[in-house]
């Protein structure tokens, strides 16, 4: 399998001039296409920082991040925004849908930015809503959806641009058991059937149990990397 993501000697030091904090410390990580990877570790271990660096939301202090062989740490901010739009899907802990848009519009919005035609957008929105089981909620705004439903819309939004992989930061942290199970089923299905690569940070044992690869971080370093 090809590596989608490669990090080399990746470090992120916060406050280097005052009280340095090594949030990520010399991480070498390779993620292959189609993996379903969980980043685990205690609070402050650097899971979110690593996800942010892989997602191009932050620049490392040292090291590099290559996506399909392209070093994103050398990209300008604007190029990185475009790169994210085309290649990376994000799912946030707090859903972060656009509150004034309906479920369908939240998904369509990403394709608007990609300049897809109305016909293409409508077709893809229908597909994605069906995949996450929310066809009947297409016209509902986020406030009219449960937390689980909002997170499913967020997954659909992340998939809208047909990205190379999806980064999910504690995606189940705000969900109840039923919603968590439902979301995990959807993500697993997308991973198996569509070969979509998922990398998520989590504390949730239910998510860890579903993951096929578990990378454990402590103090910004990988202390274990196991496949199950």
């Amino acid at each position: 399998m090809n590596n989608i993501i490669e990090t080399h000697n990746l470090s992120k030091i916060y406050n280097p001039d005052t009280v340095p904090v090594n949030a990520v410390n010399g991480v070498d990580l390779h993620i292959e296409e189609g993996e379903f990877t969980a980043l685990v570790g205690p609070s402050g271990s650097g899971k979110t920082t690593l996800l942010n660096l892989i997602g191009g939301l932050d620049y490392p202090t040292t090291g590099d991040v290559k996506i399909d062989g392209v070093d994103i740490t050398k990209m300008s901010e604007n190029k990185l925004i475009d790169f994210r739009l085309h290649n990376i899907g994000f799912v946030f802990q707090a859903y972060n849908l656009i509150p004034v848009l309906t479920a369908a519009e939240n998904i369509e919005f990403v394709m608007m930015m990609l300049k897809k035609t109305k016909q293409e957008r409508d077709l893809r929105v229908r597909e994605l809503l069906a995949e996450v089981g929310l066809t009947d909620k297409s016209k509902n705004r986020p406030t009219e959806l449960s937390g689980g439903q909002q997170q499913r819309v967020a997954v659909a939004r992340a998939l809208a641009s047909k990205p190379r992989f999806i980064l999910a930061d504690e995606p189940t942290a705000n969900l109840d058991s039923k919603s968590t199970a439902n979301l995990l089923d959807i993500m697993a299905k997308l991973n198996i059937e569509d070969k979509m690569t998922f990398i998520f940070s989590t504390h949730d044992q239910r998510v860890i149990d579903k993951a096929r690869r578990i990378v454990t971080l402590v103090d910004g370093k990988i202390v274990s990397d196991t496949k199950q």
């Binding site: 997602g55 939301l57 604007n78 925004i81 475009d82 994210r84 739009l85 085309h86 994000f90 946030f92 972060n96 656009i98 990403v110 930015m113 939004r157 992340a158 641009s161």
Partner: peptide, 15 residues
């Protein structure tokens, strides 16, 4: 916060 999310998911700052 909202602006940060929009930029994260790929919205150009100009838009």
């Amino acid at each position: 916060h909202e602006f940060g999310i929009l930029i994260a998911i790929g919205m150009r700052k100009g838009i």
